[in-house]
Design a protein around this nucleic acid. Sequence first.
DNA 1: ACCTGAACACCGTTCAAGT
DNA 2: ACCTGAACACCGTTCAAGT
Lengths: 188, 188
Amino acid sequence: VLGAALDLLAQDGPQALTMRALARRLAVAPNALYSHVPSRSALVDDLLDGLLEWVDPPDGDEDPVVGLTQVMTSTYVALTAHPQVVPLYLARQGARGPNAVRLGRTVDDLLVRAGVRGGAVAQARRILVVHTIGAAAFATSAPDTDRPISAEESLANFGQSLRWLLTGIVGTASTDDAEPGAPRRRRR
Amino acid sequence: VLGAALDLLAQDGPQALTMRALARRLAVAPNALYSHVPSRSALVDDLLDGLLEWVDPPDGDEDPVVGLTQVMTSTYVALTAHPQVVPLYLARQGARGPNAVRLGRTVDDLLVRAGVRGGAVAQARRILVVHTIGAAAFATSAPDTDRPISAEESLANFGQSLRWLLTGIVGTASTDDAEPGAPRRRRR
DNA sequence: ACCTGAACACCGTTCAAGT
DNA sequence: ACCTGAACACCGTTCAAGT
């Protein structure tokens, strides 16, 4: 149905995802699509939320910082796995579908378990989401002035910055209302 | 000339910035615009780089971490001051004009002065840029599930996360190849 | 240098009608 | 439920021609 839209995206880029082109690929009249999807923007929304389907939820019983690292990294990987979708994601400025909501709740839970309290939870979540989408956008964009960056490098960049952010987030929380290092289960 | 494009953007949103609408506003034929601008995408590029004109360059002799905070915050402010332009910025995935290049060099200089070395400079710059654009995008986007966020809150979010990132960046640099705190000019 | 008229090859979407 | 034909109101861009 709308899996053809993904094919079209992967093949010809986000620019080429038009209702008419999609209809052409499915060998139907352009307006036939409106029997399956209310509008082009709804189609894009479905596409975006569908991508988040592939994000692994963490096991639920490990160190919350490890869990956060897993979720955000998994999101980053899911986004960068479909480079052509990321620009659409940016144009929509984030997804609003059920998967996006579910993911937000998961992150909030982990933040709470990591010792973040009250309004800082939403703040920290927003920062993490911003950063992850932004990083995915840059990783999947054409290189500007620099030499091209490998996928491994991009992932390393992301991992590094994520570590810094998480250190800042739980560090602030723990110095405010917990023992230093308290959220961690074990020391190594 | 193309200041009318900014007016049109501010008034009717990024969606409405079309060559034909712009021509209508200027009371000329649509194709008359091609005497002033080679194409629509060139027009958008000029718009984006023009926005970066407003970023304050730091004084050049203060603490590099303070300088970085100033530059990135100024960039964030410049971006959020023109909310309608930010989506275009995202669609283009960053600017490639002269102002963008100049800004990149400024950031690199500050990073070097902060003790970051070699390949970590480009990595750190990329992270900072990603984060700043991402934060501006979220600040200027419509609220999704949450209650609306005030401009002050957004700026506070950004300042907080920027502090964390900078701590991570210079912290890593200084523990690797410098005395702890060495990049700082003075202690308070 | 800057503009116009006319045209080309596209868009998303709707409406009425068919099976 | 799913499709088609025809139409509406748009796009960006080009070409030839005018001043």
